[in-house]
C-alpha cells in the first residue's frame, strides 16, 4: 500500500515540552484521526509536517518525498485547514481567493465556485465578517480547489456547533470517494472521528500511545464493569485504566480475550468509544 504521509522518529524539543521520536504512517485513500488531549503535541506535529517548525530529529515524508527537500512541490498538493483561518481579515473572500489561487498550478475555479455555492459563502464579504464555521468552510473550499492529495486539518471543528461539524463529516466522505485523496485530521473531540476515521493515532505527552486501524482498536479494547469485590491485585494489573468506587469498578482492558479468564463472566462487557479509550489511557497513566 502506498503511503501518503510517513513520520519517522520525529523529534522536537521545547523548553517544557518535547515530541519524543514519534512515528506513524497514513496510507493513500484513507482518513487518519490524530487525537490526544490539549497540549499533547498535535499542533506541533502538524506544524513540523508543514515545516512551520524545524524538527530536531527524524524524518517526514509526504507522497514518499522528503518534506523539506521537496517542500514547494509537496505543498502544491496539500490542502490545509487550521483551527483559525489566518487569512487577512481586511480582505474579502474574493480578494483572498485571487491572492491564493495563483500559487497553485492546478487551481480549478469551477471547483472553488462549486464549494462556495454548497457552503453558501458570500464572496463579497470581508473575512472578518464571517462566523467561525464559515471561516472553516472557506478554508476548506480553498483547500479543496487545487486538487490536493492530502488534506491536513488541525482542530478544524474546535469551537463549532454540532451541525457544522456533522456537515464537515459529510464533506470528508465526499472527499474520500476519490481514492487518491487522504485526510489527516487532528482533534480533541473524538466523537467527530468515531464514524469516519479509518486510522487513529493517539498522542499523549509527546508520545504516540497507539496508531492503528480504528476498527482494530474498537474491537480489541473493552470496558469492563463489575462489583468491587471481584477485584484483586492480580486482575487489577490487566487494566489500562480503572476507576473504582465504594461499590463497583469500571475500567479499560486492551484485549477482549483476557476478560473471560480474569472474571469468568461475572462482569459486564461494553464497547468503548474513542473517548473512553483516550480518557482511561490518559488517566491510567496519571495514577500508575
Amino acid at each position: 500500500m502506498e503511503n501518503i504521509l510517513e513520520v519517522i522518529n520525529l523529534r522536537k524539543n521545547f523548553n517544557k515540552f518535547a515530541l519524543k521520536d514519534i512515528s506513524f504512517t497514513l496510507p493513500k485513500g484513507y482518513i487518519m484521526g490524530f487525537i490526544g488531549p490539549n497540549g499533547a503535541g498535535k499542533s506541533t506535529t502538524i506544524k513540523l509536517i508543514m515545516n512551520l517548525l524545524k524538527k530536531d530529529g527524524g524524518q517526514i515524508k509526504v507522497f514518499g518525498k522528503d518534506h523539506i527537500q521537496h517542500e514547494k512541490e509537496i505543498k502544491q498538493h496539500i490542502g490545509f485547514v487550521y483551527d483559525e483561518s489566518h487569512f487577512y481579515d481586511e480582505l474579502t473572500l474574493d480578494e483572498t481567493k485571487k491572492f491564493i489561487a495563483p500559487f497553485y498550478k492546478s487551481w480549478d475555479d469551477h471547483v472553488f465556485h462549486k464549494y462556495i455555492k454548497i457552503f453558501q459563502l458570500p464572496l463579497d464579504k470581508k473575512i472578518k465578517e464571517l462566523s467561525k464555521g464559515m471561516k472553516m468552510k472557506f478554508s476548506l473550499a480553498l483547500a479543496l480547489s487545487h486538487d490536493a492529495k492530502l488534506l491536513i486539518m488541525d482542530e478544524p471543528t474546535s469551537g463549532l456547533d454540532p451541525i457544522v461539524r456533522s456537515e464537515l463529516l459529510d464533506i470528508l466522505y465526499e472527499i474520500i470517494q476519490d481514492e487518491e485523496k487522504s485526510v489527516f485530521f487532528s482533534t480533541h473531540i473524538t466523537s467527530d472521528l468515531e464514524k469516519v476515521a479509518d486510522y487513529i493515532t493517539f498522542i499523549h505527552e509527546g508520545e504516540i500511545v497507539l496508531s492503528m486501524a480504528k476498527d482494530d482498536i474498537l474491537d480489541n479494547y473493552c470496558i469492563v464493569k463489575g462489583g468491587i469485590d471481584l477485584l484483586d491485585t492480580y486482575n487489577q494489573k490487566a487494566f489500562v485504566g480503572i476507576r473504582k468506587t465504594q461499590y463497583n469498578f469500571q475500567g479499560l482492558i486492551d484485549c477482549r480475550e483476557k476478560v473471560q479468564n480474569l472474571f469468568k463472566g461475572n462482569v459486564i462487557i461494553e464497547k468503548p468509544s474513542l473517548e473512553d479509550i483516550m480518557l482511561y489511557i490518559v488517566r491510567g497513566k496519571q495514577y500508575a
Binding site: 466522505y173 465526499e174 474520500i176 470517494q177 476498527d215
Partner: peptide
C-alpha cells in the same frame, strides 16, 4: 456499491466496508 460509497451511506469508515 463501491466500498467508499457504502462507507458514506452507512457512515462507517472505508476500512470497515473494505473488510
Amino acid at each position: 456499491p463501491s466500498i467508499r460509497n457504502l462507507a458514506r451511506e452507512l457512515q462507517v469508515s472505508v476500512i470497515t466496508t473494505k473488510r
